[in-house]
Design a protein around this nucleic acid. Structure first.
Lengths: 177, 177
DNA sequence: CTCCTTCCATACGGCACCGTATGTTGGCGA
DNA sequence: TCGCCAACATACGGTGCCGTATGGAAGGAG
């Protein structure tokens, strides 16, 4: 079977979601794909290059897309709620995110995470401005909201089943002036 | 130089803070201590046993102690603020915490993290009850507060310098009814 | 059909870490 | 002072992963 660069990043993305950064290893990936690492090393110079392509693909596919989805809601409150509800759905989406957060100091992952985070914070700030906050307060609320999201996502891992019932209360707390 | 079991967990704790879970490896640890792994394997049957002793030591030393410190404050608001300010100080304390959170699914770490989290959530719930919330709402607030803490701690890693100025606002938002 | 490039398999050496087996030492009890 | 045992050091084999070297197959261009 012939494989492309995108096939490998797709496989790596799945591995990243299921097994974390450690699972993005050339030989296990190849075995999983029914190939050998000869193929991987043909498309990528080394493991870091594969990882870089993988996380950058994730960045392209799962950052703007979420914002677009959220923007389909009408009120800022609904947008905020949809934002939380969406990204906290514990599919591949959130798993990849957590894998990246868990390895935030990795030199390949760090710049991607920085860009994505800043993009999100910018969007959240705009949302809170639409809710009537001045710029300074909106920025703080955005930071609080994003931190809350990160924490919730983390708790899905350690103590699942405790997060969902708190969603409405969280949005309420965040939007109150 | 003679070494005890506690010497090794001390060294492992430092390694955990500075290099994450990966750094808690027998041979590097021994080299770092100016010894060989013969010593480590004399005190522990294997790497997981060392890790277990290490995280359980952290659990003993850094869970109750924080609560005790926080309890020295007078008002629940001050307690909450001190709690955030303390645990978010990015010394060894927070680094170990993040290393554990980043490896929450590790079979040695998971149970410790679960116990610590439940203990903290319980304490936070009590705090919010003291603030006048009924039990159900206090539980939700506790969850929100703890998630916020986790997220803030994570952001110290990815985008430091953005967290501190938001502390007061966060406490304010959390305690408002 | 042939040639050439792309794609991949095989085989190899290397590194880092785990765990075991066994030798060595230094201090303490009798 | 002798012997013993805890506390190591040393040496070894094993595993999983990285990266390289090289040969072979498959498919389009001519």
């Amino acid at each position: 079977m012939r494989r492309t660069r995108e096939d490998w990043t797709e496989i790596a993305l799945r591995a990243l979601a299921e097994g974390g950064l450690q699972a993005v290893a050339v030989e296990p990936l190849a075995a999983r794909a029914g190939a050998t690492k000869g193929s991987v090393y043909h498309h990528f110079p080394n493991r870091d290059a594969l990882l870089k392509a993988t996380v950058e693909r994730w960045e392209r596919e799962h950052t703007e897309r979420v914002i677009e989805l959220v923007e389909s809601e009408k009120t800022p409150q609904d947008k905020l709620r949809t934002l939380f509800a969406t990204v906290l759905g514990r599919q591949r989406n959130g798993s990849v995110e957590m894998a990246l957060q868990a390895n935030a100091e990795n030199e390949v992952i760090a710049p991607v995470l920085k860009r994505v985070t800043e993009r999100r914070l910018g969007y959240l700030t705009k949302l809170f401005e639409q809710l009537g906050f001045d710029h300074e307060h909106a920025k703080k609320r955005a930071l609080i909201a994003f931190s809350l999201y990160l924490g919730q996502a983390q708790m899905y891992v350690t103590l699942p089943g405790l997060v969902e019932p708190v969603l409405d209360e969280a949005v309420q707390v965040l939007t109150r002036r």
